[in-house]
Amino acid sequence: MRERGVALAETLELTIGYSSRRRCVRVMEHLSVSAGSGELVALIGRNGAGKSTLLRTLVSLQPPIGGTVRLQGRDLHTIGSTMLPRIVSYTSTEPVAERNITVREAVSLGRFPYTNWIGAMTSADREAVDLALEDTGMLELAGRRLDSISDGERQRTLIARSLAQDTELLVMDEPTAFLDLPSRYGIVSLLRKLTREKGKCVLYSTHDLDTALNEADRIWLMHGDGITEGAPEDLILSGTIAHAFESPLLSFSSHEGTFSFVRGKRRGIALGGDAPALSLTEKALGRCGYTVDQKADVKITVKREKEGWCWTIAEGSQTRSYSTLYDLMVHLPEE
């Protein structure tokens, strides 16, 4: 089991926002959440909910308007600027300024808080960099330039840089943005591995609900009334997730923990046949405004035949057959 001691990062009645001499914009108030060692914490919420603002406040890139942030049990403002980079690392969505930098050079910069005035690397620093490259699977690509690798590999490089910084808490703003599905899963499973094998606490913001609800130990959910935390399943059961992402177009299934489109008025259609085409046919029919009703007049039967699948639609005495779902849907009975 993971250690459950003092929270590594916690906020107490935190107010986040932007303040200048002229005015003060409060983005969110009364935020009290925490994250522990060895936990993967996903911060979710709708666009503009203040996810980035919260993360930036946690790493001291902007001051809190009110309330407290504690890292390793210490108030954030009492941690000096030389100490803070050894406790928390941060990866933003800001693009890397110099695209010609090599992977190894970029990861080496993670040692910044530990090197001397000129940034000379000791053998301990080099070992830390090698280890970070190995843990993220980037050792082979260490000599490549950042503009010659894929987006997923670039994200891994930034994670390696955070690892090289050797902090207990890793904060990442949308590390899976712009990535394709396998890369997204690759990144999240890497983050998960770091929490399990290295005991790191990884806090990341994301719009990828599926992965977050499946993989995170804890969810910080930002919604209109503040922030709610808990295991993904807790938030599903309490209905907080469904409430936070409420929209006339979406319905949330607490059973599966997934969102789907709300369909309008539906017509019944009878359906029978072989799996797995059966459930896919039901899905396609749902998109066309049908719901399965075995008492309906029109019946569709799907069968596996030698040359492939065959859909037969029976309407009274008339029957028609199609070899693809697309053809079937085009020829579904009109109103």
Partner: peptide, 23 residues
Amino acid sequence: FVMVKPLNAMLMGDTFSRTVGVR
């Protein structure tokens, strides 16, 4: 020459530089 270390950090962007302690 005294500034080489922050200059190197700046290659990764301003936000990174700030979070590793560059003023």
